[in-house]
Design a protein around this nucleic acid. Structure first.
Length: 129
RNA sequence: AAAACAGGCUGCUCUAUCGUCUUUAUAGCUUUAUGGCUAUGGGGAAGGAAAGUCCGGGCAGCACAUGGCAGCUCGCCUCCUAACGGGAGGAUCACGACAUUUAAUUGGCGGGAUAGAAAGUGUAACAGAAAAUUGUCCUGAGUGUAUCAGGAGUGAAAAAAGCUGAUGGUAACAUUAGUGAUCUACAAACCUCGGGUGCUGAAAGGUCAAAUAAGUUCCGGUGUAAGGUUAGCCAGACCGUUCGGAAUGGGUGGACUGAUACAACUUGCCAGUGAUGGUAAGUGCAGAUAAAUGAUAGGGAAUUACAGAACCCGGCUUAUAGGUCUGUUUUUAUU
RNA sequence: ACUCUGUUCGUCUAAUGGUUUGAGGACGUCUGCCUUUCUAGCAGAAAAAAAGGGUUCGAUUCCCUUACAGAGUA
């Protein structure tokens, strides 16, 4: 059976790449979630995993830290359960990708809703590649 | 027993599967080694407010941060505390709702205020004769003036605060006797007196590796003029100029440390009205770094409130579903 | 994580440093006049101290707490 793990090294940490995602990355929208992604061509970190993810929620829309944590946890959980679909694809394995999930909604979501929207994002990503 | 008010305590739980951070044991891979990665098993994983950042302290750097002024801040008394603007117990004053009384009053409760107005300056609308060196009208004392006593009216306020002694109390102060004729209020107006206070803030600071110019730092000699120093002013301190030697290296992105064992927590006993202190036994209880607690399914009364550690403590303030305890008042029932 | 400002009609703002404050002005809104009608013009009206507590005879102003908005430090 497939293991749905989500290790620390799979999280996107580099400030450089995050900056590049917002300036040059491509966008897939599935309201209330936006996905920024980019193909990473930096060959210096070849031992890194092929996929890296980050999650973010605006402090202006959600003032309470509890709400922001909740949304990030929900998005992280649904990505954890769905990212194996991406790993199985052949095109993905040829290079490395970085993803940034951004929640732009106004209200606290349910888990099922988040799961559907993330799925939509990933399907769109598969098509574009 | 119910309701209202006030205060204290608590702050959902269990099972299964998958997943995150940390610690530890074993095995494998890697490394000169410390260590790192992976797998499996065990232990631990947000709060009463983690919040607001309103105070106090530890810790660190800046001249091993020294004195005065300015500025800021606090201000009844005694005590608690590492410290505080916090807390406990008391004193005085007016206020609030409640009870009581025909009424004046009295009673406990509640939150608040209280250094100095006899050091000086300032302000006190309207009304009123007069708002602080003021004296209207009426009555009485007085021959009369001056003065004294009582009353009227205006207004928030219209003339007894102080001093000396005695008694009680550690004290604030209370009671009482005498003396006393230039005396109100406001200091959350300026101010005076007394106490405290240097500034900055873990994104502080320290160590390591990669890379390298201007430069920077250190040591020794020389030198004390301008000027400079995370510093508002004065003093004091240090730096400086030049020569020689040594070390380091801007930006960028990292790792380790700071960093989780202490004013710690739990229980018992003792002292105290109490805050709190002493003592004995036991416990080890988050430590992340783009930042860890979630998802699914099912139960237990049941869509659980407010809400997420970021260097650490002591308070204050604010938010809060449900449960629970104590006190006061009212109503009802029983004795 | 830390530091600091501000909040006055629908909008932008003023003065008051405690006593005729009935809170002023501009733009906007409404009503009337004018005009064949609209605009412009003239006349008039409505409309505000973030919330709560304290000091005071009296608070928009002084003090405290809370809420909201904004700025700065990497």
């Amino acid at each position: 059976m497939e293991k749905h793990t989500f290790k620390r090294s799979e999280r996107l940490k580099s400030k450089k790449i995050i900056g590049e995602i917002f300036s040059n990355g491509k966008v897939i929208g599935a309201h209330p979630i936006k996905l920024f992604w980019i193909e990473v061509k930096d060959s210096s970190a070849i031992d890194q995993p092929i996929l890296q993810f980050a999650f973010t929620v605006s402090k202006k829309k959600f003032k309470k830290a509890v709400d922001r944590n909740r949304i990030k946890r929900l998005m992280r959980e649904s990505v954890r359960l769905q990212k194996h679909e991406l790993i199985q694809m052949d095109e993905i394995n040829k290079s490395r990708f970085a993803f940034m999930f951004l929640y732009i909604g106004e209200e606290l979501p349910e888990y099922q809703n988040v799961e559907q929207k993330i799925k939509k994002c990933i399907d769109q990503f598969k098509i574009t590649i």
